[in-house]
Nucleic acid binder design. Sequence first.
DNA 1: CGGGCTTTGTCAACATTGATGACCAGGGTA
DNA 2: TACCCTGGTCATCAATGTTGACAAAGCCCG
Lengths: 194, 194
Amino acid sequence: MTTRLRAVRPRQPAAVTRKAIHDAAHELFRNEGFDAVGIRAVAARAGVDAALVIRHFGSKEQLFLEAMTVDLPAIKVMEGPLEGMGRAIVEHVVCLPSSRPGALAVTALAALFRASDRGEVQRTLRETIENVFAEPLVRRLEGGDAELRAHLIAAQLGGLLTSMHVVQDPVLLAADRSAIVVRYGDAIQRLIDT
Amino acid sequence: MTTRLRAVRPRQPAAVTRKAIHDAAHELFRNEGFDAVGIRAVAARAGVDAALVIRHFGSKEQLFLEAMTVDLPAIKVMEGPLEGMGRAIVEHVVCLPSSRPGALAVTALAALFRASDRGEVQRTLRETIENVFAEPLVRRLEGGDAELRAHLIAAQLGGLLTSMHVVQDPVLLAADRSAIVVRYGDAIQRLIDT
DNA sequence: CGGGCTTTGTCAACATTGATGACCAGGGTA
DNA sequence: TACCCTGGTCATCAATGTTGACAAAGCCCG
């Protein structure tokens, strides 16, 4: 009897395969959400067996977290002057139609929000918001209740982000971006001052 | 040969069984989230066969929507005077430790947010926010950009709600509620005025 | 060269999930 | 009694995430 026929795939260093899976997952999860994308779909796109996905990342949830926690670069506007910072931050979050790093970070954060009833996802979301929004602000704010105000600003930013990318409020999506910057920026400024 | 033995359950009118499933689902989904709760768990709690759940509600997602779209009473504060409305709204959303109707509505809305990568859930979430937050405000606001401002306030409220009940920001949860009311209320007021 | 060891990949299963369809029983009505 | 609508049960389906046994390629050391 002949030996079993196997569809072998040329061996590659672990880092290469891992990156292929990571990239495929990033693309799929960001566009279609956590549970619309199966492990087998990620594996197919990466040209890999489904079991390898688990082997390399432990679980689907872990893969999701690693794929969505890309960059998330610090918002450099938060290091500028306090006057007008409200509008500057909103402009940073709401504009940039496709300027690579920022836009990806925003949609990735939105994907975290949408999948946040997974316990581990919720934890990552909390830490990300703390690191990217709240903590940089705490160091800048003056006056009383600085920590509370920073976290309330983070809540405002999260609200704007989810309204546009999770809820997809049609009024906000159709509105003039500069009007949003002015209005919402001034509301944020209210918490920056005093 | 004897006939097949069946664990029959006393027949009940459809409305009764349906309500039992609805209540069980409401309790479980609100506490543990959409995909931590299986259809069989809901059925067990309702004392019912799993197939009946689908029979009565069509799908798990539909059951989730019907179970989470309870009451959601209009926020009566939005019909009061414009001065001080910002703080009044925040107080309405953030306080009430367990005053029945309101607290349930808030956590149910949070459950919708957490499950919002299901397409139908997202649609319901959008409509709920429009009906409960944005639309009542549009009718009250004066001055230019009333519609935009109303939806931005809705974004602020969604942000506060998700920060406390989805992200569960420890700073906000530990903070003095009245300080949140004052600070965040004034930031909302900024969008109510002018 | 050759035998072991680790690394990389494949496949066949597993348990659980949401969902479906066939069937059955009770009860009212004609 | 015969009928049929309604409410309920069970077996089963396809798909999911995950696991473990196994195969083959590369590498090290003799």
